[in-house]
Design a protein around this nucleic acid. Sequence first.
DNA 1: TAGCTATTTAGCTAATACGCTAAACAACAA
DNA 2: TTGTTGTTTAGCGTATTAGCTAAATAGCTA
Lengths: 101, 101
Amino acid sequence: MNAIFDALSHPIRREVLELLKRGGMTAGELADHFPVSKPTMSGHFAKLKSAGLILGENRGGTIIYTLNLSVLEEAVMGFMNRVRAGQSASTRTCPPKGETA
Amino acid sequence: MNAIFDALSHPIRREVLELLKRGGMTAGELADHFPVSKPTMSGHFAKLKSAGLILGENRGGTIIYTLNLSVLEEAVMGFMNRVRAGQSASTRTCPPKGETA
DNA sequence: TAGCTATTTAGCTAATACGCTAAACAACAA
DNA sequence: TTGTTGTTTAGCGTATTAGCTAAATAGCTA
């Protein structure tokens, strides 16, 4: 939980997650999207990875990072549900089961 | 966006939001739930307030904080939708409109 | 082997964040 | 006015974070 929200607190790291939504990208490709050095980006990747939000696959010299969406979903939606618990239907994200949207 | 995710990065601040889900509480009531000093809690309230996540109403000497859920919803769900965009139906949070859950 | 590309690690600086105590401020009661 | 309660502000110490450059590591190609 903590590591995940910590990881989400930096705008570059949130944007990395967005870039990965369509599939894997190499560390270099990702780094090229941001105006900071590659070592700095490597630190951001490390934080995202240790939070479990991305996975790194080593493909001979280059590393392909992919989004681990389920971990993000579970942490963020779990928190939102805890904050919303007991709220009225008007603020629910989804309709109750068995009802039409 | 940034201020909101920054505010969410500290576990005490997330828990404050959860405590406020059922209604307003005074700064002192909130502070009593945590093992840190009141000045420290005051700093956490200030951060939550400047992010727009809570509102403080001054009722003669004591301050009542309330959750501003819509700001939290908009930021967090907005981000989740950006990260999910283009994902398959199996990972969607809600069923498409007009379908039964 | 050497050389090239991709990425991380090491080491540093500067800025930010979090905690504390003591003091200040505001509202109310005696 | 004095005291009491509730809360924030001021000031400080320490830890963490984010950025940099330079160097190290890993894998490929020739």
